[in-house]
């Protein structure tokens, strides 16, 4: 025998289930009298610096059907590439910006929508700049462990080409699954980011 390390094991993940909204976005399903607002649902305040953008899309299962019961959280840097919250030691992020948001997909169409700002570039662990990106975390019924992925911006071709994370992906044909396409039709830059859980063009998910 040797000495024990006395470390604990992470609590095993379990699915968020179909009723995840009760605990996370109760107003979305008509539970209006417990919390004042659904956490993470408020728009970015006007004083936040940065270009206003919309991110929208759907999550498809292996049969090509859109999930109608999923929940998405996003986490991102501010316009200068600094993270709000804990763990940022390079400087102070925009104090008006939380960096985090949460939205359920629509119960009928499966469409999700975030109104946020375009993040700046933050450094990779070796100091090289990463292209602007937004972290996505997806949970739902049938997903046993929350899925992490990243949205990269289709109009950042040069930055994406130099991005150290995208550069490490061996199967280059899968990289486009992480890149959102831009449209300006609505007057606000709108990035469409569809997520495919399985099958053709399955989105890249990360072990972080």
């Amino acid at each position: 025998m040797v000495q024990r390390l006395d470390r604990l094991k992470e609590s095993p993940s379990q699915t968020a289930g179909p009723y995840v909204h009760i605990g996370t976005t109760p107003h979305f399903i008509g539970i209006d009298n417990v919390y004042p607002v659904d956490l993470g649902s408020l728009p970015v305040p006007p004083e936040v610096k940065g270009e206003r953008i919309v991110i929208t899309g759907r999550i498809f299962d292996g049969s090509g059907n859109a999930l109608r019961d999923a929940l998405i959280e996003i986490w991102q840097a501010d316009a200068n590439g600094l993270y709000p919250g804990r763990g940022e030691h390079r400087g102070t992020a925009d104090p008006a910006f939380s960096g985090w948001a949460r939205q359920p997909v629509d119960g009928t169409t499966g469409i999700y929508r975030f109104e946020t700002i375009k993040p700046g570039s933050a450094p990779y662990s070796d100091g090289r700049p990463m292209a602007p990106h937004i972290t996505f975390w997806i949970v739902s019924r049938g997903i046993n462990v929350g899925l992490h992925t990243r949205l990269y911006f289709g109009d950042e071709e040069a930055a994406n080409a130099a991005d150290p994370v995208l550069g490490r992906i061996e199967l280059k044909s899968r990289v486009p699954t992480l890149i959102a396409s831009r449209s300006d039709e609505s007057g606000v830059p709108t990035y469409t980011f569809d997520i495919r859980l399985q099958g053709e063009n399955e989105t890249i998910f990360f072990d972080i």
């Binding site: 986490w75 840097a77 993270y83 919250g85 763990g87 960096g99 990779y124 662990s125």
Partner: peptide, 8 residues
């Protein structure tokens, strides 16, 4: 990376 080591 910094994107995973930070949080709200």
């Amino acid at each position: 990376t910094i994107s995973e080591m930070t949080g709200p």
